[in-house]
Amino acid sequence: MRAAIDIRRSPSRHLARTEWLRSLNSFSFGAHSDSDNTHFGLLLVSNEDTIEPGTGFDTHPHRDMEIVTWVLEGALVHKDSTGHNGIIYPGLAQRMTAGSGILHSEKNDSWTLTGDQEHANPVHFIQMWVLPDTAHVTPGYEQLDINAPLGQGGWVTLASGMSKHSGTRAISIRQKHAALHVARLRPAETAQAATAPFVHLFVARGSISLEGSGALAQGDAARITDSEGRRISAGAHGAEVLMWEMDTTLAVR
């Protein structure tokens, strides 16, 4: 495979809007279909969503998908049919294994959480889906606060199914060929992207400079194929970066 870097700028993402939701989709999703942009590696969905207070996704089904949610601002309330309830906030990693079938809801219940409707705020988060390596497993849920290691700088493994990360403090996913890392970088701080067949970098906040490709702004992504780890440097206001490391891809989707 030939090394390549495909930069996807934020404005190129599909925008879906309702009265209560603003969703920027990096790949085909829902009613938006693009046969040339269905996935990268094992990553099928990378949506940047903003939900208004007192609203959200009502109970709906999922099956055979590993779903990881990363909140940037606000708080997202999760409830599912296996009895799991959780409040996802910045720095809290969350994974839901849909497996043989699960129902769940995701709400911005900030009015209830704060007790003050006047000061309720939108919730802003990234939701990512990868296919599991085993179908029809028992549905599951896991969350973990990683704020402490994030504050130390550099990459923190957020979620992984790779054996090489088995000793790390991360939530698990049912995909042995994928891992998700996050870094909160101070201005001018540097980090090295993973060396892997497929690497997906997403700038969730701030800006970075990517070796060989130049500047990436908030909302931009780099799809890196079969490349040695590229150096990234945070911009003048720092950056928060999500990085998927993947050993394989989907042959057909």
Score class of each variant (00 low, 15 high):
residue 22 R to S: 14
residue 245 E to T: 02
residue 64 D to W: 00
residue 158 L to T: 13
residue 6 D to K: 15
residue 41 G to C: 10
residue 212 G to M: 14
residue 176 K to T: 05
residue 114 T to N: 03
residue 96 M to C: 12
residue 127 Q to M: 13
residue 80 D to M: 08
residue 189 E to K: 04
residue 135 A to W: 01
residue 111 W to V: 10
residue 244 W to K: 05
residue 58 D to E: 08
residue 142 E to Q: 14
residue 219 G to M: 01
residue 131 L to I: 02
residue 7 I to C: 15
residue 227 S to F: 04
residue 240 E to N: 03
residue 121 N to M: 11
residue 65 M to F: 14
residue 197 P to F: 04
residue 75 A to Y: 05
residue 84 H to P: 06
residue 6 D to A: 11
residue 54 G to L: 01
residue 135 A to T: 06
residue 37 N to Y: 03
residue 240 E to C: 11
residue 248 T to A: 15
residue 131 L to A: 07
residue 210 L to R: 08
residue 51 I to P: 01
residue 120 A to N: 10
residue 100 S to Q: 11
residue 221 A to D: 00
residue 187 P to G: 03
residue 2 R to S: 14
residue 84 H to K: 12
residue 149 P to C: 04
residue 251 A to K: 08
residue 195 T to H: 08
residue 77 V to P: 01
residue 9 R to W: 00
residue 121 N to Q: 14
residue 56 G to I: 06
residue 174 R to C: 10
residue 39 H to E: 04
residue 35 S to A: 11
residue 39 H to F: 14
residue 17 R to Q: 13
residue 111 W to C: 03
residue 199 V to K: 00
residue 252 V to R: 11
residue 224 I to R: 04
residue 181 H to G: 13
residue 113 L to F: 00
residue 130 V to T: 14
residue 205 R to F: 02
residue 132 P to Y: 07
residue 201 L to Y: 00
residue 123 V to W: 01
residue 16 A to H: 12
residue 52 E to W: 00
residue 198 F to C: 06
residue 139 P to F: 05
residue 22 R to N: 05
residue 242 L to D: 06
residue 161 G to E: 15
residue 52 E to L: 12
residue 177 H to M: 13
residue 21 L to K: 10
residue 26 S to Q: 06
residue 226 D to M: 03
residue 175 Q to T: 07
residue 63 R to Y: 03
residue 161 G to T: 12
residue 238 G to W: 03
residue 136 H to R: 12
residue 219 G to Q: 03
residue 37 N to P: 05
residue 63 R to I: 12
residue 170 A to V: 13
residue 11 P to A: 11
residue 230 R to C: 07
residue 184 R to G: 11
residue 177 H to P: 04
